[in-house]
Amino acid sequence: MTSFPPPAVPTPDAVAATARTAGLDLPPAAAARIAAAVAPAFAAFAPVSGTLPFDLEPATFLTVQMRELAK
């Protein structure tokens, strides 16, 4: 059975693999630099990752914005 570990900061290898799927071949040094650059954002966002409710309406942001406007 597939397991889902807590979201992790991407490694250089993971960065290179993700970029390759988007058609961008990264040399190892670039992948390492990118992994370091995005790590703080991944780490800070980790508590949210994997916690959003199943039924979260995709347009909730607009709904909240418009609710304010209606006040």
């Binding site: 961008l24 670039a30 630099r33 990118i34």
Partner: peptide, 9 residues
């Protein structure tokens, strides 16, 4: 370099 960061997401 900044733009390439996006390919890691």
């Amino acid at each position: 370099a900044r733009l390439e960061n996006g390919f890691a997401i």
